[in-house]
Design a protein around this nucleic acid. Structure first.
Lengths: 203, 203
DNA sequence: TTTATATTTGACCGCTTGGTTAAACCGTAT
DNA sequence: ATACGGTTTAACCAAGCGGTCAAATATAAA
């Protein structure tokens, strides 16, 4: 039936997500995914014909979840500084629950940049400057934000949020030597990152 | 002869580096490395017994080159702000010549965190605060740097430098939509990142 | 109950993979 | 010349891979 169908398909999809995120596209094995889902390997190919198709769907869903975290910022009608604090809070919280996603996404994109092209075109990055001007024209004069340095500022914000998780494997090692707890560091980062950026962009 | 030996071994090592960096450990094929080196596949196993051994040596050399860029900062007897500018200049320049290295290292570490443990223990991260106090005790009062927020500041610096390359595949796509040139962005980042950090840590 | 359709399985296939082996090759010291 | 050491090769192997297929099973309509 269609209900049981959804159950099996979802079971497979979740197992595939786990395995792909942990091992990557090349390291993942169809048999491993099947076992994780508690089904036969042939059933995998019955629902998702090939490994590439299965991976594509998993990747697109994950990447979509990640990038969608950037969008709400432009909807809220709150001051710019609050938006920055809001973003770091939401984004870092999300990654704290899914710490392996950043590394997975970054790696798979570098391995096959074409894969992200479709997702990217749905978000209108080119219009961000316009949106910024419209929503914050009355407070923008307080900050050092121009159309020219916007890419620098945006990538800085993204990097401060994403990097700690993308480099988790290294940082945990370093922090251990320094007597720092990673989870506590992450919790503190929500505020630190926001205030760090705000201070720097304020005239 | 030993000279020919070194030639072949180096030829293999360089080919292995190229292939591993491009495809990753799981995606790389021994036959592909052999072909790139212009030799027989069996000769690969003659010089480096297994794929894991070959990969380990390649990875350790690459990671070593990367991390060594952090060290010179503590040797120079220049003001703190100059050190920050110096670091971004050197580090970003190095990555500009080797843009795939950051993504490669981050990914392989997440895939096998134990691999980095040895390299990390050689650098005394725990002593950085002490070194900082010794070298800059007369100017440290000008900045908001404490032993507590040092991990936040250090990871921020690292992230601003590394992230643009680790996320190159995405950024190039986004920048295209915004009419921004990636190389120009990278060149500008050397200065932007340094001044961004300096402004934020200055009291 | 029978029939038609969708789901699930075990067995199987061709191919690629990392790795091995025995023989050929080559410079050199005797 | 020849005997010897390290170097290089073609041929080969077992294991693992993604993927297929025909048969078995479950499901629901007739």
């Amino acid at each position: 039936m269609t209900e049981n169908d959804k159950q099996t398909e979802e079971k497979i999809f979740e197992a595939a997500t786990d395995v792909f995120v942990e091992k990557g596209m090349d390291g993942a094995r169809m048999q491993d995914i099947a076992t994780h889902a508690g089904i036969n390997k042939a059933l995998l190919h019955y629902y998702f014909r090939t490994k590439d198709q299965l991976f594509s769907k998993v990747f697109e869903k994950i990447a979509g979840r990640m990038f969608s975290k950037f969008a709400p910022v432009f909807d809220e009608k709150i001051p710019l500084e609050e938006k920055i604090r809001f973003f770091f809070n939401e984004h870092i919280s999300f990654m704290k629950d899914n710490p392996r996603l950043p590394g997975f996404i970054l790696n798979e994109i570098n391995r096959n940049p074409a894969r992200i092209k479709k997702l990217l075109s749905t978000i209108e990055f080119g219009k961000i400057w316009t949106i910024l001007c419209e929503q914050h024209k009355d407070e923008l004069h307080k900050y050092n934000i121009t159309q020219e340095n916007l890419p620098q500022i945006m990538t800085t914000i993204a990097s401060m949020s994403v990097f700690p998780f993308a480099a988790k494997g290294i940082l945990e090692g370093i922090f251990q030597n320094m007597g720092v707890n990673f989870d506590k560091y992450i919790e503190e980062r929500k505020v630190f990152a926001a205030e760090f950026v705000i201070k720097s962009i304020t005239k």
